[in-house]
Each structure stands twice: as C-alpha cells, then as structure tokens.
C-alpha cells in the first residue's frame, strides 16, 4: 500500500449528503454530547469534572493573562513557521524528486521507512542538536509534516499520465511549458490533499514537542496544569487548541474539494 492510498483515503472528501430537513444531525450530536458532559459534570459536582461553562470561563480568564497569551502566540507562530516550511520545502523537494523518476523510486522507500517510525521518539535528537528553544520545537513540527508532503507530491509528480506527455512531445512542447501546463495541474490535487493531511501532523508534532520541552506554548500550558489538577483550565485549553486546529482544517478541506473538482482525474478536463 502506498502512502497516497492510505493517508488520503482515510477521510473521504465528499461524503454523500442527501437533502434533509430539520436540524442537521451533526448539530444534534454536538449539542447532545455537550448536554451529556454538562449533566455528568453537574451530577458529579467535582473539581476534576468541570462543566462546559467553567471550562469556557477559565479559558476567558486565561486569555486575559499576558503569560498565557504569549504561550498561545508562541504556539501559533511556531505552527505557522513549521507549516509554511512543510508546504514550501516539502512540495519543492517532492516535486523535484518526482521529476527525477529514477531517484524517486530509489529514495522513496528510505523516506517511507523513516516516516513509519513513531517520530516522537526522535524528538530528543532535536533537543540535543537544536537546543531547548523555538528551533527544536519548530524543527520537530516541520519534521512531523514534511515527509508525507514529499512522499505524496513526489508520487504524484512521478505518476503524471504518459499520454499527455507523449502528446506534448509530439507537439514539441518545451519542458517549462510541459511543467506548467501538464505536470503542475496534475499534481495539484495531491498537493491540496497533502496540505490538509500535513497540517494536522505538524500541529500534533508541535503540541507533543511543547508538552515535552516545558518552556512555553499551549502544549506546555496543558501539562503544567496536570499536577495542579486545574481541570477547568485544561479543558478550556483543549477547547482553544481545537478552535486553532479547526479553522484551517475546514479551510484546507474546502480548498482540497475545489482543487479536486477542478483538476481531479475523475472529472474529464478539456486540457485548457
């Protein structure tokens, strides 16, 4: 099984959505879960089981403290840096590797082997070589996302269908024209999919790095509250983390759906 099969097939992009009237089921489920949480918290009435209101209150209180805001800003900034790095470095490397099809075939198994290692155990190496600061955390977040990006983009670039290429050759198209008119459009769907997939991986890597390093950032804030048993704070922070992850995730999914609709292989393109 290739990475593109497994990683991109795991979440079908366009679920069947029959027209339904009334309250949308996802909303009902969300409200139901929230109500269940509230009811349990009210029944248990314990400090380790905050109600949703307590959690949001604690989050709002925390958001007024400069230290917490700095931590949140640190996380967002690190995430952005690492993710831009993943998108640019990963895509360019993957693209170049994919064009050199022989080397793509030789190097991919190595990258795939590194990719299949539970990467978290390599984090101490980042600390050893990059220190305790931002560099190691951004570096690890980058490392968490860049391999799938390289693998997916290079696989797509190496798998450009031969027929358009032969047509281009018979039309005597120049290599730059082939790249902009055939290769790039045909790898765009895989690139959009990889953008979505690697965002989650990058954020995950960053959060784990922050939890382990314990200097600053939302991961650190989460873990700092464990010995203090400040559950309201912890749950509030989890809500914040989810909010930070959700907006780009939805945006990237929309982007992917559009790119697939426009450039995907399933739709018959007219090759404009």
């Amino acid at each position: 099984m290739t990475l593109s099969d497994s990683a991109l097939a795991d979440t079908p992009v366009a679920p069947a959505r029959p027209a339904s009237r009334g309250v949308p089921p996802p909303l009902v489920l969300g409200i139901g879960l929230l109500a269940a949480w509230w009811a349990i918290a009210a029944l248990v009435d314990s400090a380790v089981m905050p109600t949703p209101v307590t959690a949001v209150e604690r989050l709002l209180v925390n958001l007024q403290s400069t230290r917490f805001l700095d931590s949140a800003a640190d996380t967002v900034l690190r995430l952005l840096t690492a993710y831009v790095g993943v998108a640019v470095v990963g895509a360019v490397t993957g693209f170049l590797l994919g064009l050199a099809r022989f080397w793509a075939a030789a190097v991919s198994p190595l990258l795939y082997a590194v990719y299949s290692v539970p990467k978290i155990v390599l984090f101490p190496l980042f600390l050893l070589f990059l220190g305790l600061g931002d560099a190691s955390q951004v570096g690890f977040a980058f490392f968490s996302g860049v391999l799938p990006m390289v693998l997916l983009v290079s696989a797509a670039a190496a798998a450009v269908p031969p027929l358009p290429l032969k047509l281009a050759a018979s039309l005597r198209m120049s290599t730059p024209a082939v790249i902009t008119k055939i290769v790039l459009p045909s790898i765009l769907p895989a690139f959009a999919g990889a953008l979505r997939l690697t965002f989650g991986l990058t954020f995950l890597g960053l959060l784990i790095a922050e939890m382990f390093t314990g200097v600053s950032g939302l991961g650190y804030e989460l873990l700092r509250n464990v010995p203090l048993v400040r559950m309201g704070d912890i749950v509030g922070e989890v809500v914040l983390v989810i909010l930070i992850a959700l907006a780009p995730a939805i945006g990237l999914r929309t982007l992917e759906t559009r790119v697939r609709a426009r450039f995907g292989t399933t739709t018959e393109g007219d090759g404009r």
Partner: peptide
C-alpha cells in the same frame, strides 16, 4: 450524517491535547 463531519476533521485536531485530561 451526524458523525461524518467530525470524522473529517478528526486528524486535524491534535488529540494528544486530551491526554492531560
């Protein structure tokens, strides 16, 4: 219908954030 949107964004959320809870 109810679960699909949650599953779609599931791996975008760093679930390890829940570990401290």
């Amino acid at each position: 219908l109810a679960l699909q949107p949650y599953l779609n964004v599931y791996y975008a959320i760093p679930i390890f954030a829940v570990y401290p809870i």
